[in-house]
Nucleic acid binder design. Structure first.
Length: 423
RNA sequence: GCCGGGGUGGUGUAGCCUGGUAGCAUCAGGGACUGUGGAUCCCUUAGCCCGAGCUCAAACCUCGGCCCCGGCCCCA
């Protein structure tokens, strides 16, 4: 029996890291005023098709249930969360700020940082179309990535409204425009050159996407002349968003005119975060401003949000030593003889009731082996209970780091604090 | 779907080219040590990804499949 392709088992050490990262994400989102939501692991297939088009059926884990319904394991959370919003929260006070964490499934070729079952964390601010909301979303994403220990993250910010304005200034057919968008998103300069090089607008676009460093002024100067009034107004909007970032704790970002984010429903500011050390699958976050009332028949609903690739985040993260090292056991109890055994189990119960993490010998090992086992488990203390101790109502407590030993009383009052360690 | 590199006890590896007894390390369990850990020694459990072919004989050669790793495509 093997694990299905593209899935993983997680052992205790790995789970400790994952739970740590998860709690960092959760706690931070709560602190920023977001409430958690959860949606079903599977939905009607139609929900995902409507959001993303027929093409995604290829990548869905879909099936028919016994009632003949077409269902699919969720490949992402945006559509389910929007469904939840429009069905359950559309009359809630605006803006609605929610976050989610869970597993999602895509039938794809696994590779580094890409699995068939993966985890995502994300947030949405729904019912807000202001620079303030956009800035908060960008800043929260950036903060989260940093807080889980990704040191070298690069935040890139762009605006699809400006990009669309530039592409439509090229005067291409809709089909050609699609191709250009795709090339822009990939940073494929050769294809761009082929599609729209030679014209003024085309050269400008190629120049912008190819640029490594750029200021807002450059962007305006280079691209602004060719654009209509509405598109030009996006520059000030974007500037406004960016001006709020430092106050929200964001130290640095790169302007990237070429972020297209694939989907049609993005309307304004868009952003991505990369962890360069991850190689081909380096994007750990993507998000932006969107409009998707049309999908669910709601009247115009605008919002801004992002999704974090939890597994990639962990690959890129330097999880603090303490998280990994922090042993899972405060005390291991070893005993000798029938009397020792009873006293040992009683001691374990008392210590556990007082909040300590306690394990006890279950294999009837001798002291030597029990100590070795406790050591390999990373226990801080070993309590030894033999005839000698039980007769006098004490246990021998051995500090596994220093090797020092002392006797402690077995009375429950004494046991409460005798280990003088944080619980 | 495409290209490349791989799959040998639980883990890490040698053996493969040049077919013929699968070796080492580590971990785990037990013992030497009658109540004090990571040492030493001994013992034990346990392996050639799956299938077909060539051959007297396949971990080894050939073909197909599965899975892993890196990349392409895709990335809602």
């Amino acid at each position: 029996m093997k694990r299905p392709r593209g899935t993983r088992d997680f052992l205790p050490g790995e789970m400790r890291k994952r739970r740590w990262a998860e709690s960092v994400l959760r706690d931070t989102a709560e602190r920023w005023g977001y409430g958690e939501v959860a949606t079903p692991t599977f939905e009607e297939e139609e929900l995902f098709v409507r959001r993303s088009g027929e093409a995604i059926v290829e990548e869905l884990y879909s099936f028919e249930d016994k009632g003949g319904r077409r269902l699919a394991l969720r490949p992402e959370f945006t559509a389910p969360v929007m469904r939840l919003f429009s069905q359950e929260m559309s009359r809630s006070a605006k803006p609605v700020k929610i976050y989610y964490f869970g597993n999602a499934f895509r039938y794809e070729r696994p590779q580094s940082g890409r699995y068939r079952e993966f985890w995502q964390f994300g947030t949405e601010i729904i019912g807000a179309d202001t620079p303030e909301a956009a800035a908060e979303s960008v800043a929260l994403a950036s903060t989260l990535v940093r807080k889980v220990g990704v040191e070298d993250a690069v935040l890139r910010v762009g605006h699809v409204g400006i990009l669309r304005g530039m592409v439509s200034a090229l005067g291409l057919s809709p089909g050609e425009e699609r191709e250009v968008f795709r090339a822009v998103d990939k940073g494929d300069l050769e294809t761009m050159e082929r599609l729209c090089g030679g014209t003024d607008a085309g050269d400008v676009l190629v120049g912008l996407v190819g640029r490594d460093k750029m200021s807002m002024e450059d962007w305006r100067d280079i691209g602004g002349g060719l654009l209509d009034e509405k598109t030009v107004s996006y520059f000030s909007y974007l500037e406004d968003v960016l001006s709020l970032l430092p106050a929200l704790g964001v130290r640095s970002w790169k302007l990237d005119p070429g972020i297209a984010r694939g989907l049609d429903y993005y309307t304004g500011v868009v952003f991505e975060i990369d962890a360069p050390r991850l190689g081909a699958e380096k994007q750990v976050c993507g998000g932006g401003e969107y409009e998707l009332g049309s999908l669910f028949g709601t009247s115009q609903v605008r919002g801004v949000g992002f999704a974090l690739g939890f597994d990639r985040l962990l690959l890129a993260s330097a999880v603090p030593e303490g998280v990994v090292q922090h042993g899972i056991l405060d005390v291991f109890i070893a005993y000798i003889g029938e009397k020792g055994r009873l006293a040992a189990f009683e001691m374990a119960t008392t210590l556990r009731e007082n909040g300590y993490r306690v394990d006890i010998d279950l294999l009837g090992r001798n002291i030597s082996k029990a100590l070795k086992y406790a050591s390999s488990r990373g226990a801080r203390y070993v309590a030894i209970l033999g005839e000698r101790e039980v007769e006098r109502g004490v246990a021998t407590l051995r500090d596994m780091q220093s090797g020092e030993q002392r006797e402690i009383s077995l009375s429950s009052d004494e046991l409460k604090n005798v280990l003088d360690m944080p619980r």
